[in-house]
Amino acid sequence: MREKTLLKIALIAAIIGVIILFIFSQQEEKKIVIKSIEETAGQKIVKVQGKITKITDKEKVAFMEILWEKPETVEVVLFKDQNISLRQGDYVEIEGTVEEYKGKKEIIGSKVVLK
């Protein structure tokens, strides 16, 4: 194939390809709203909404208990990359991954939204 032809094909493919990839990058990965934290084995990102019933707020990390749908609480650990102010009684939406710590499931939060 001639180099000029290959150049044209590569240029068109590159521009269209970058546009397609940009569209993909705007898609949000599916978040799973969990019914029970025990059902979340193997899920990548989960979302939970509820009220903070207990909070221990340190400089770089916050440990919270969230009361959510059922009358049960879930432990959330949030590593802070900026100053955030959360208090007991705040209604929050937490996004994160489920990990097991000392035999108990907890959520390592990556995003928190104050409702």
């Binding site: 180099e3 290959l6 150049l7 590569a10 240029l11 493919a13 590159a14 390809g17 970058v18 397609i20 990839l21 993909f24």
Partner: peptide, 20 residues
């Protein structure tokens, strides 16, 4: 599949400098 598409697009971009 998304990685494969990224690789394909990157190949197209990679061809451009030597051809240009």
């Amino acid at each position: 599949i998304y990685g494969f598409i990224l690789m394909a697009v990157s190949t197209a971009v990679g061809l451009l400098p030597p051809l240009a």
